[in-house]
Design a protein around this nucleic acid. Structure first.
Lengths: 224, 224
DNA sequence: ATTAAAACTTGACCGCCATCAAGAAATAAA
DNA sequence: TTTATTTCTTGATGGCGGTCAAGTTTTAAT
């Protein structure tokens, strides 16, 4: 972990974007750095909630476990994303688990420090509100979709959305099928079957290396 | 709608709780009042997002429609609750619908006004962050639960949680079966069947007026 | 390059629950 | 109260998709 990584960390995060260089320096001084290997756990549901996490580099999955032991992937955090609820409630337990999917650098800020920052720079709270708002919107959609649509429709939607957001026709699935399955609320077996089905219908083409090529996005969106 | 209803409106809401009476008066002056009949629509997904809503009295359901037309109930807003994402993003469309379930009084604050308030009184942003955080936690749980657990487990969980939060053994279902069904991601028919099943197992007793009595909460929580 | 382990695919089976339908009960209206 | 609507319950049916299992491919390790 090099010295300039510290600087990158706070600069990466949109929630600090209104602050000036000198103010960023102040924040840098209270940030702690961590590194996690692939598969390593960042936190468990049993852990106490006392830090705000910033993904300085890498990829992290945040998931919950249902009573029956099944896993539900909630967020896929990328570089620059934060895991935030953490810093805002007192004496609460976490409800989620987080695990590094690739070697990952994390910066953390203690809850007390972050709350002080928010008092000092109101723009931070506003920015965090925006992050939360987007996350709420995403979760609302995910809830609606898992509760009311078929697995096939959810998968089709995921494929077209991912392609659209990357602005490409073909892309590599960013997750193992198992993780993608827990994200879509299904199983790896079903994902395999549905992808094969889409391919037979000519809607997609599966290429080596988990690459999916979208052949007919319009038709995919009509899948029920 | 009486004059003192204005005063109640801002006092009701936890997000303003740190403010003094004189500051509340200022806010009162920029609040608009509305009344809705049962079944009346507060907003559609097509509406623009330019106000923060405060439920001054009554009950409101907030829901989404999936591509296939099925409804998903997301929130049941009670007196004192807010519908907030609204005020925070520019030029976005709503993604949800809202409908009054009983005669309902609403106070609204325009986005610009509310953002100004947040700049002026940082405690408001912090409070809104707390509201959002709780809502996120709730939604995360709902997503996990609908995606990974059986309808039976979700219903059992809903019953025990509702009873626990009201701190009673018996309570009246606050929603029609149809709405409860869209909340739990199922159908009214299935709810009927599951409740009958629970009753036959001695776990609950159904009484006239949609009243449910919990007989064995421990056993209910073990339902898979 | 070989071996070991993990991830993926395909098949067979079957249970949960959505759907359609019709009758009963409850609520609202006249 | 009587009538009309809406809501609720119960039955019959069928399909989606989860589970278990075995084989295949990919990835990782030595």
């Amino acid at each position: 972990m090099s010295a300039h990584a510290t600087h990158e960390c706070v600069q990466l995060v949109p929630i600090f974007q209104e602050l000036e260089a000198s103010q960023l320096d102040t924040i840098e001084s209270i940030v702690q750095h961590h590194h996690y290997q692939t598969g390593e756990t960042l936190f468990n549901a049993e852990d106490s909630l006392d830090t705000l996490l910033i993904v300085a580099g890498g990829q992290v999955k945040v998931y919950q476990l249902a009573a029956n032991g099944r896993e539900q992937l909630l967020y896929l955090l990328q570089t620059g994303d934060i895991d935030g609820e953490a810093a805002l409630f007192e004496n609460k337990q976490r409800t989620s688990y987080a695990e590094a999917l690739v070697p990952t650098d994390i910066c953390s800020i203690r809850r007390d420090d972050f709350q002080q920052l928010m008092q000092q720079y109101p723009s931070i709270s506003i920015n965090v509100l925006n992050v939360f708002g987007k996350r709420l919107t995403q979760l609302e959609k995910q809830t609606t979709s898992t509760a009311t649509e078929s697995v096939e429709a959810r998968l089709a939607n995921y494929l077209t959305e991912t392609a659209a957001s990357l602005d490409v026709q073909a892309f590599k699935l960013p997750l193992k099928k198992k993780d993608l399955a827990t994200f879509l609320g299904t199983t790896p077996e079903t994902i395999s079957r549905k992808l094969t089905r889409f391919e037979k219908q000519g809607l997609i083409t599966q290429k080596p290396g988990k690459v999916i090529q979208i052949n007919d996005a319009d038709q995919l969106l009509l899948v029920e």
